[in-house]
């Protein structure tokens, strides 16, 4: 599929004219489509980014699924199920978007299961009380939206289009999360304590979702030039903080950062230093739930092997019987 799109040369020996023409298209805000020529490094960057994004959606089902069977009301259970289903659907679009670049879903999935491919560090944190489901929607999906709204204008067509649809659903997710937080923060003292505990644990990991600080972001500058990324990690993080702090104030919850302060001159909040050691550690596989999340994905894949084999065997039998009928005819 899309093999035409694979004719670009290896990185380093690409004709200067092609590279210049490619950059000119990007500069004119033209979308790059699967069959278009593209630099090998552009393709590689996109496969890495889109597949990581897809993996995040799939692994991200797990911390929320942890509360589906314990959701406190029928309405909450239905909303949470619908939301997780959306996330799995996002995984599907994104794998499809990455496939247009010539990478198979099987290869991407094998890379996830072998630990070669990464997914968002946030999903390696546990959901310990019901307010965490609120915090995941409000903070985690809120942070994801900041990133993804920017990606709606990314230069690669299929990625950009999938983001438009995903963003619509994510904004619903963010709202339902905030609604849970409102109920919890304005509920009984015990509910409020759960809400505060949730923000205490999720605030910093949510800020880490934007990736390393600009000065330490290895892929950023080329990605900005190719308009894969439209804003820097730090800019998006700042935008998120500025939007979220007033929401926390409305909830009457304390953000766990004693250095957080409104700068009257800029209208933005200054914040304390992010614990980048923790970020690197979680990315490396040493977060509280890395092992558990991967074990769950590997188990599902392994337990499902006989199901996939049966479906394939049946499809083959059907095909054979169709072929035989054709021959007889």
């Amino acid at each position: 599929m899309y093999s035409q799109g694979l004719r670009d040369s290896a990185a380093g020996d690409e004709p200067v004219e092609l590279l210049a023409a490619f950059q000119a298209r990007i500069d004119k805000e033209e979308k790059i489509e699967p069959r278009d020529w593209m630099p090998a490094a552009y393709r590689k960057t996109l496969i890495r980014q889109i597949s990581q994004h897809a993996h995040s959606e799939i692994v991200g089902q797990l911390p929320e699924a942890n509360w589906v069977t314990r959701a406190p009301t029928l309405k909450r259970k239905l909303i949470l199920l619908a939301k997780i289903q959306d996330e799995a659907g996002h995984g599907l679009y994104l794998y499809s978007a990455a496939e247009t670049l010539g990478e198979s879903r099987k290869k991407m999935y094998d890379d996830l299961l072998s630990g070669k491919a990464k997914y968002s560090s946030i999903f390696n944190y546990p959901t310990l009380n019901w307010a965490d489901i609120g915090a995941v929607g409000w903070l985690v999906d809120g942070a994801a939206i900041m990133n993804q709204v920017a990606l709606c204008r990314t230069s690669y067509g299929p990625y950009s289009r999938s983001m438009v649809r995903i963003c619509k659903e994510e904004s619903f997710h963010q709202r339902q999360g905030y609604e849970i937080m409102v109920k919890m923060a304005h509920g009984t003292a015990q509910q409020k304590a759960m809400a505060q505990d949730a923000i205490n644990r999720f605030w910093w990991p949510a800020l880490m979702m934007f990736g390393p600080s600009d000065k330490d972001s290895p892929h950023s500058s080329q990605s900005m030039k190719w308009k894969i990324k439209r804003f820097s990690n730090d800019d998006l993080r700042q935008k998120f903080i500025d939007a979220t702090v007033p929401q926390a104030e409305y909830l009457g919850l304390t953000i766990p950062d004693k250095h957080l302060k409104l700068d009257d001159a800029t209208g933005s909040y200054t914040h304390g230093e992010i614990d980048w050691k923790e970020f690197v550690n979680v990315i490396k596989g040493n977060g509280p739930c890395n092992q558990q999340r991967m074990a769950a994905r590997i188990k599902a894949h392994k337990d499902g092997a006989w199901v996939r084999e049966a479906a394939e065997a049946y499809a083959k039998k059907l095909q054979n019987s169709k072929d035989n009928k054709k021959e007889v005819a």
């Binding site: 029928l74 239905l78 289903q85 599907l92 188990k299 499902g304």
Partner: peptide
């Protein structure tokens, strides 16, 4: 059925199991 959420044999089937659970819980409601 909701217990399958995130643990299906492959992605499409994971979605189908969750979706079926969602429909049936809607009927329950």
């Amino acid at each position: 059925l909701a217990q399958w959420c995130g643990h299906g044999p492959f992605l499409e089937e994971d979605l189908a199991l969750t979706n079926t659970s969602l429909d049936i819980l809607g009927q329950a409601q």
